[in-house]
Amino acid sequence: MNQDLLERYLYAVTRRLPEKQREDVAQELRGLVDDMLFDRCGDITPTEKDLRVVLTELGTPRELYEKYSGDAGKCLIGQPYYSTYKLVLGIVLICAGAGITIANGILLMLEPQNGLQAVLTWLSMLWNSLISAFAFVTLLFAFFSWRGIPVNRDFDFDSLPTVPKQREQISRWECIAGIAFCIFFMVVFLGVPQVFCAWLPETNQRIPVFDAAAIRQGWYWIALFSVLGIAGETVKLLEGRYNRNVLLVTLGTNFLSAVAGILWLTQYNLMSPEFTAHLSQLFGEGEEIVVTLFSNFQIFFLCVLLFALILDTAEAVIRTLKK
């Protein structure tokens, strides 16, 4: 009988098992094969054909390995994580794809490329960002699944949420658009602030509105705005309705955004000196109000920002409390 065949079979079964189990499992299977051969052949010496029949009865090495390892039917991200994983993955991919596409479009406006090159650049950026987003979300959920970290809170009937009324519901697309806007805002302000520019028709000159160096110096404020915005929208998206959690997160992120906005816009001189110098030339002598407005653009911008934050807070308060 070919003993080598048996040893090769046992090696194939045990080689991926934990090291301390390998010899024990192999030894036990050797005994089993011996018993099965004795059952089949009695006192007659078994041939290689008998061994092949016995091993076929035991199954392929892979099948036997799966039974020993307990890996059969296991998966990286099982329920109850899979549903949430699918939702989050879809949203993250849409946001990453949209953000990169818009940013790429703007880059293209600034530095025009020929058609094929532009498409290839876009595809490569898109591919990289989608792969990174996919890997990040998958690793995160694989970790949740591995550690059994709870993601759903519907284990108790009393804590099941009530059915939201029309007024309380938050549209999923509204949140996705919000997240995509936050990414877009960050990419454009940090990457290409020169895209905001005024045009002087007389000299065919483009004057940047912002001082790119000052904007980049305070990069962390811009990053903070985006992170706060994304956090707020993500909570809305996951809850799907206005409730206490959404209200608290909205109040918190809006308050922090307001403080960050005040600090950012009073600490840095973000307007380019060139733009301030050309104001009257840009808008004409008669447009005193516009000139005054742009001379104090940071204060004006801060007012608009605070007004928007107050509106958003008021909407959250009203839609949460008015049931």
Binding site: V25, L32, E57, E63, L64, Y68, G70
Partner: peptide, 12 residues
């Protein structure tokens, strides 16, 4: 009961 089911079961 197949031996290939029983042996891994005993170990489990």
């Amino acid at each position: 009961m197949d031996a290939n089911t029983l042996y891994p079961l005993l170990r489990r």
